[in-house]
Measured scan of single mutants.
Amino acid sequence: NQESVVAAQLIPINTALTLVMMTTRVVSPTGIPAEDIPRLISMQVNQVVPMGTTLMPDMVKGYA
C-alpha cells in the first residue's frame, strides 16, 4: 500500500511547506504520494490544513 503525505500539524493558509509539517501514512483515499515530499518543500497550501489531514493535489499551489 502506498503512503500519502499527511499534515503533521495545523498548516495555516498560504504557508510554505517544510519537512517538519508533513508525515506519511497509508490512507484512503490516497493523496499526494510520499515520494513527492521533496517536491512539496517550499510550496504553499491554498487552504487551512488541519493536523492529520491528507494533502491532496488541489490543496498545494502549483502542484497539480
Results as ranks from 00 to 15, higher is better:
Ser42Arg: 08
Met22Asp: 00
Pro57His: 13
Arg39Asn: 06
Gly31Val: 04
Thr30His: 11
Met56Phe: 07
Thr54Ala: 08
Val5Arg: 01
Met59Lys: 02
Ala16Val: 10
Leu19Phe: 13
Pro38Met: 07
Asp58Leu: 12
Val45Asn: 02
Thr15Ala: 08
Arg39Gln: 08
Met21Tyr: 08
Gln47Lys: 15
Thr18Asn: 04
Gly62Thr: 06
Asn1Tyr: 11
Thr15Tyr: 05
Glu35Gln: 12
Asp36Pro: 00
Val48Arg: 10
Val26Asp: 15
Ile13Ala: 09
Asp58Pro: 10
Pro12Met: 12
Pro57Gln: 11
Gly31Cys: 04
Gln47Ile: 08
Pro33Glu: 10
Asn1Ile: 14
Val60His: 01
Val20Gly: 05
Ala64Ser: 12
Gly31His: 02
Met22Asn: 00
Val5Thr: 04
Gln9Asn: 06
Asp36Met: 12
Met21Asp: 15
Gln9Met: 10
Val20Thr: 13
Val20Leu: 07
Arg25His: 05
Asn1Leu: 15
Asn14Arg: 06
Thr53Ala: 10
Ile13Tyr: 13
Leu55Gly: 00
Met21Gln: 03
Ala16Ser: 05
Leu19Arg: 11
Asn46Gly: 14
Pro29Ser: 15
Gln2Arg: 03
Gly52Val: 02
Gln44His: 08
Val6Gly: 01
Ala64Gln: 12
Ala16Glu: 09
Pro29Leu: 05
Ile13Met: 09
Pro38His: 07
Thr53Ile: 13
Val48Gly: 08
Pro50His: 08
Ser4Val: 02
Leu10Asn: 12
Ile41Ala: 06
Asp36Cys: 14
Ala34Trp: 06
Met56Ile: 13
Gln2Ala: 15
Thr53Lys: 12
Leu40Glu: 00
Val27Ala: 14
Val6Asn: 02
Asn14Phe: 11
Arg39Glu: 04
Gly52Ile: 02
Ala64Leu: 14
Pro29Glu: 14
Val60Asn: 02
Val6Cys: 06
Thr54Gly: 02
Val48Cys: 15
Glu3Trp: 08
Met51Ala: 07
Ala64Phe: 03
Thr15Ser: 05
Met22Tyr: 01
Ser28Glu: 15
Met51Asn: 09
Thr23Leu: 13
Asn1Ser: 15
Val60Thr: 02
Met43Asn: 08
Asn1Pro: 15
Gly62Ala: 14
Glu3Ser: 05
Pro29Ala: 08
Pro29Lys: 06
Val5Gln: 01
Pro38Glu: 05
Thr30Pro: 14
Asn14Gln: 05
